[in-house]
Design a protein around this nucleic acid. Structure first.
Length: 423
RNA sequence: GGAGAGAUGGCAGAGUGGUCGAACGCGGCGGUCUUGAAAACCGUUAACUGUAACAGGUUCGGGGGUUCGAAUCCCUCUCUCUCCGCCA
């Protein structure tokens, strides 16, 4: 949610930002400005009237105390009149507030100035790349075949138990999941992120706080009996820890990491892109989240990108980092870097991490604030990124490192996995 | 699941219809004293909204109601605690 002050200050800036994001309903901006003015007008009228009623009520109290009943009754009659008007104003005011809010949440975040122009994923800009794409023999297999060959995962079993898109990992496959999760968490905590283990279900308010509601409702699993949602990412519970919190300046930045399974309905996805582990309904991910001072949030973003880059490098996977163009960014983000790793058997790039700065967009909604040395509060910035999502990392590890003798694992995983190869 | 108690400022905790946005204490901040510190003493210290700055408005778990006036009375929801039951 964009701060309302921005609409009062710089309408042009908002329109430019929305254009870059290819957002069409630009007329909403003027609706917001008008509604805000209306709201403030009503508020002023209401406050003035309320002030006179408050003053009169105090006088009534004083008259009663002195036993001046007549004067008290006189004032009562006066107040009764105002009360009718106030009742009406309150209704109008709350309508205006509701309308303002409902319109405000429809607008996406504004892109940072460094966001490239563009509408489609093809227009994303490659910032840099690293690692080497391996040359595989003709006998190379895609990960879903390797999974079967080494009995690492069974999708049809998951189908039986839950439904399509719910993989069952077993044996060395299950062990690899655990090894990766533990390695990722250790890597993150070593960089100062505090490990958390949050709930995997959240209430409506929480889902709303990070922006999953109202616009992505259909993408989450909903436990209707209890009004809970299964988390699509641990960003949701982690960031919401700081909902309605005023963080003292010296405690900034807040750095958190968590492992969680992620549940996504992926309504509307189908076709070849979803084979194997490319797109599933439940997957494992380790997330990093930061809450920061607005002044340094873009430095923080670069640090997070570099952190994730080192992690990907340590796994020896060929990767590239993209700066997303305006049209490909998420609703809530101001600047996003995507990490992709090259899947050598499928011969395509797969997204494994997305690192974003949301600026005040989430924090404004959640009222995450910081208090500076002068005691003033201001809205904080929130950032997050995957570090990392497992399925596509696993797909690449298997495909890129396949040999006739088995699948070689990167050095960093040996101690976590208990051996150096899947065989 | 059953029975009971409770939710007040950073913390602790008074306050049962009228200058209560809220006592006292602790903590925090500023000062006096001191070479410095401690102690003692004095002062100050909620959030949101709003204003150029005042003013004003809202907030005592959330929502609704009674009343000229609600932290205080009524309804309702949520949460916490204690006891019982069940249980990984």
């Amino acid at each position: 949610m964009l701060p309302i002050q921005l609409f009062r200050q710089d309408r042009e800036l908002i329109l430019q930002g929305l254009a870059k994001k290819h957002f069409r309903e630009t007329e909403l901006v003027d609706v917001i400005i008008e509604t805000d003015e209306k709201r403030r007008r009503l508020q002023l009228e209401h406050d003035n009237l309320a002030a006179s009623v408050n003053a009169a009520s105090k006088q009534i109290g004083m008259h009663m105390a002195k036993g001046e009943k007549d004067k008290a009754e006189e004032l009562k009659a006066q107040v009764a009149q105002h009360k009718e008007t106030i009742k009406d104003l309150v209704q109008q005011l709350s309508d205006a507030e509701q309308q303002l809010h409902d319109t405000l949440v429809k607008l996406p975040n504004l892109p940072h100035s460094s966001v490239p122009e563009g509408k489609t994923p093809e227009e994303n800009v490659i910032v840099r790349s690293g690692g080497e794409i391996p040359t595989l023999t003709e006998q190379k297999l895609p990960h879903w075949d390797l999974m079967t060959q080494y009995r690492l995962m069974d999708l049809s079993l998951g189908n039986k138990i839950a439904g399509s898109g719910f993989p069952v990992f077993m044996g060395q496959g299950a062990r690899l999941q655990r090894a990766l999760i533990q390695y990722f968490l250790d890597f993150n905590t070593a960089a100062g992120y505090v490990e958390h283990c949050p709930p995997f279900m959240v209430n409506e308010e929480t889902a709303y706080g990070t922006g999953q509601l109202p616009d992505k409702e259909g993408q989450m699993y909903h436990v209707t009996a209890d009004g809970l949602y299964l988390i699509p990412t641990s960003e949701v519970p982690l960031t919401n820890i700081y909902r309605d919190v005023i963080v003292p300046e010296q405690e900034m930045p807040v750095k958190m990491t968590a492992y969680s399974p992620c549940f996504r309905r992926e309504a509307g996805s189908y076709g070849k892109d979803v084979r194997g582990l490319n797109r599933v309904h439940q997957f494992d991910k380790v997330e990093i989240v930061q809450v920061t001072d607005p002044a340094g949030s873009y430095d923080t973003l670069e640090q997070m990108v570099s952190h994730v880059e080192k992690l990907v490098q340590s796994l020896g996977l060929p990767y590239r980092i993209l700066r997303l163009c305006g049209g490909d960014m998420s609703f809530t983000s101001a600047l996003t870097y995507d990490f992709e790793v090259f899947s050598a058997a499928q011969e395509r790039w797969l997204e494994v991490s997305s690192v974003s700065n949301f600026e005040t967009f989430q924090a404004n909604r959640m009222k995450i604030r910081l208090r500076d040395a002068q005691g003033k509060t201001q809205i904080a910035h929130t950032l997050n990124g995957s570090s990392l999502a497992l399925p596509r990392i696993v797909a690449c590890l298997l495909e890129n490192n396949q040999t006739p003798d088995g699948i070689k694992l990167p050095q960093v995983l040996h101690s976590y996995f208990g051996k150096d190869m899947i065989s």
